[in-house]
Amino acid sequence: MVVQLAKIAGLKVIASTGSDEKVNYLLKEIGVDVAFNYKTTSVDSALAKEGPIDLYWDNVGGQTLEAAVEHCKVNAKIIVCGYISEYNNEQQYGIKPETIYVLITLAAIKNFHWIFKKRLQIHGLLTPDHFTKWLNKFMEEVPPLVVQGKIKTKEDLVYGLDNAAQAFVDLLQGKNLGKTVVVVSEDD
């Protein structure tokens, strides 16, 4: 959705994903300007070729965020809504959940000096923080865009609650192409 809203706003969109199938989907179905498979093309080389970046939406962290920071323009904005590359650090480093956020910050941005040298603005985003102010506007604007076909949706349906755990694992491993939905009942 972020990619599609950026395209609607007239922005050039560079997108990374973990499979060639998803690259094709982003290019042919969604209409991004540039898409690449980060497993076969380094994020750094893709951004060196296609950047620099004015606005970066991050839900990965780690080396991907480092590469983005490196290729940001002065005064660029970074919105962080996740850090999937760091989710397993608790097991990797044997730390407690309450201390993982400090570690993630340090592990996710090794080239921290670019943040102040480029005067980057980094914002953490948790959707519930914005419900009161933006939910009504979102509901007025986004569902009509879906109905009009301006925002495309794709769902990966998994049937049965007993398959939910595997669906979640598959999601974290990037095996889904669309939004993972566990169908627990087909009753209306």
Rank of each mutant, 00 (worst) to 15 (best):
L172V: 01
H71E: 01
F131K: 01
D54I: 09
Q63G: 07
N89T: 11
E155P: 10
Q92G: 00
W134H: 15
C72I: 01
Y87R: 04
G61W: 00
D170A: 05
K118A: 05
P143S: 10
V80A: 12
K118N: 12
E140C: 07
I151N: 13
Q91M: 12
N176T: 10
Q91A: 15
Y83G: 14
W114A: 08
K73R: 13
G62R: 07
F138T: 10
Q92T: 15
S45H: 14
G149P: 06
V60F: 10
A167C: 07
C81K: 12
Y159Q: 06
T132G: 13
Y87G: 02
F168Y: 12
I78F: 06
V102D: 14
I79E: 00
I53F: 01
G174F: 09
D156H: 08
G124K: 10
P143C: 05
I95F: 03
L126S: 13
W57D: 02
Q148T: 04
Y93L: 13
D58A: 06
K150Y: 01
N89R: 15
L47D: 07
I53T: 02
Y159W: 11
V74M: 13
G94T: 00
Y159F: 15
E90R: 12
L161G: 15
N163Y: 00
H71P: 08
H123V: 07
D58P: 12
K77Q: 14
K73Y: 00
D54R: 06
P52L: 05
E70S: 12
K118V: 00
L161M: 13
E86C: 07
I151F: 03
A48I: 04
K137W: 07
E155R: 06
I122T: 07
F131N: 12
F168R: 06
P128H: 05
Q121D: 09
D162F: 04
K137F: 04
K150Q: 14
Q91D: 09
G82Y: 05
G160C: 05
Q92C: 01
E140L: 09
V69S: 06
M139S: 11
Y83I: 05
V147S: 10
G82Q: 01
A164F: 11
D54Y: 04
D162Y: 06
T132S: 11
P143H: 05
N163F: 10
A167L: 07
V142I: 15
S45G: 05
D54F: 08
H71T: 05
V142L: 08
A107F: 11
C72H: 04
F131Y: 14
V142A: 09
K154G: 04
K152I: 08
V147M: 06
L145S: 06
N111V: 10
I109K: 10
N176H: 11
H71S: 02
K117E: 12
P128F: 11
E90H: 01
Q121R: 14
K133M: 10
A48G: 03
I53K: 03
L103S: 07
L120S: 04
E90L: 14
I122R: 04
L125K: 06
